[in-house]
């Protein structure tokens, strides 16, 4: 089993492909792999509670570790109290830690 780190820089409103990446993350997780989805840039717009179009909750329910860049959240005025349940606020350095630990990484 491997570990996968996906950077999601886009949001569900601008790109339908975001849902595809969520599906891939869920599929890999269900196959037994470790999967982290790190939301950066406008990807964090999907993390606000009440975003109906987001499939993040499905990814979280499947066991995907969903993190959101604290820097991008602050830039967009998304406070921790407004995040969808299960989304973890993280510094970008945490992603570097996963890279250094050998997680297979891809940027979207």
């Amino acid at each position: 089993m491997a570990n996968y780190l996906f950077f999601e820089s886009r949001d569900v409103f601008e790109s339908n492909d975001v849902q595809r990446l969520c599906e891939l993350a869920i599929q890999l997780r269900r196959a037994g792999h470790g999967v982290a989805l790190f939301l950066v840039q406008n990807g964090t717009l999907s993390a606000r509670a009440g975003v109906a179009a987001s499939r993040l909750h499905q990814a979280i329910a499947a066991g995907v570790h969903v993190l959101a860049d604290e820097f991008a959240l602050a830039e967009r005025g998304i406070g921790t109290e407004r995040l969808a349940g299960g989304v973890e606020v993280a510094p970008l350095g945490e992603a570097v830690g996963l890279l250094a630990a050998g997680w297979k990484a891809a940027w979207h």
């Binding site: 409103f13 601008e14 406008n42 820097f71 602050a74 830039e75 967009r76 005025g77 998304i78 406070g79």
Partner: peptide, 28 residues
């Protein structure tokens, strides 16, 4: 419209960038 609606959010507070030994004086 679209994602630019977020520009109207009062709570936006972009942190200052630090890149290597460079520090941003005026974040957006």
């Amino acid at each position: 419209r679209c994602n630019a609606v977020n520009y109207a959010v009062r709570a936006q507070q972009a942190p200052a960038l630090a890149i290597g030994t460079w520090q941003q004086a005026h974040p957006p």
